[in-house]
């Protein structure tokens, strides 16, 4: 049974006004447990709208959404359960920090779940460990942290709810390369340790290539492609056509293949070097 599932989901922007339009249109989608799905697409393609349906922040115009096999709009209880089963971390999550200490802020979610003090403490400490926040930072004010630390504290606030599915909307936006790599490594390690399903919305095809197991491409309110990284990234022309910025090494390979080199496709530097060397190595 897929952990997340959508059946014919449509969502409208500006409902009832002349500018009404479909943000996502008749989406059918199954996501299996344990996957790390990268969701890419240009701004306005519907990728953020799509993920906000899984925890019931947005209500669809039509269609059904299932989390763990339960229709999340079938009862009030089911909707509330979806909130905690699917942890959604929005863009620039550091702007949601509000408590006096980092510890209290991370415990906001677990507290809302009605857990006892002991369980909350366990979860906060574990979440802080996952995102790599040192224990001594937990007693500080979240507003005294550095930019990257704030981001990680905010993500910990979602992880502490121990959701079955973790969704991160552009978790690396605005960070420098060091901050970005820390977050990506953290997501990868978190999934490996917990076995949770992770959805990663991103503009960066490089980031997605580094950690995802599957890729979902949104275009114009539809799912354009959904498959393994290899399957999706091999369609570089199609991806370019819908306005996506393919990794630079993929561009290099596009040119080489056009010249008749038949190297296949590569989207990470490691893979590219390997392919060229096997070709060149034979020649040398």
């Amino acid at each position: 049974m897929p952990v997340l599932s959508m059946k014919g989901v449509t969502h409208l922007y500006n409902k009832g006004t002349p500018s009404q339009s479909k943000a996502i249109d008749n989406i059918n989608l199954d996501i299996e447990e344990g996957e790390l799905v990268g969701i890419i697409g240009h701004t306005g393609s519907g990728k953020s709208t799509l993920v906000q349906h899984f925890n019931g922040i947005l209500k669809p115009e039509s269609g059904k959404i299932f989390v763990d096999g339960t229709d999340i709009w079938s009862s009030k209880k089911a909707t509330r359960e979806a909130r905690f089963k699917v942890g959604l971390c929005f863009q620039y999550p550091e702007y949601q920090l509000f408590e006096e200490t980092v510890y209290k802020d991370i415990s906001f979610g677990p507290k809302n779940m009605g857990l006892n003090e002991e369980e909350i403490q366990k979860r906060v400490l574990l979440a802080a460990k996952y995102v790599g926040l040192q224990q001594e930072l937990l007693e500080k004010s979240p507003f005294d942290l550095s930019g990257g630390e704030k981001r990680r504290a905010a993500i910990a606030g979602v992880i502490a709810m121990q959701p079955k599915v973790l969704i991160l909307d552009e978790p690396t936006a605005g960070l420098d390369p060091v901050g970005r790599d820390k977050i990506l490594d953290m997501i990868k390690a978190y999934r490996e340790k917990t076995g949770s399903t992770v959805l990663l919305v991103s503009h960066s095809m490089e980031d997605v290539a580094k950690i995802a197991t599957k890729v979902l491409v949104m275009n114009d309110a539809h799912i354009e492609m959904y498959g393994t990284v290899d399957e999706v990234y091999s369609h570089s022309e199609k991806l370019r056509e819908i306005g996506l910025n393919i990794p630079q090494v993929s561009k290099v390979f596009e040119i080489l293949n056009k010249k008749g080199l038949n190297l296949g496709s590569a989207y990470t530097v490691e893979k590219a070097a390997e392919l060229i060397l096997s070709k060149g190595g034979a020649a040398v």
């Binding site: 390369p177 060091v178 490089e206 630079q248 090494v249 290099v252 070097a273 060229i276």
Partner: peptide, 20 residues
Amino acid sequence: LGLDVPQATELAYRLKKAGF
């Protein structure tokens, strides 16, 4: 220094290091 280099530059660098 915690910075990236363009993928194309990095590819060439790796190739060269491998004797290409």
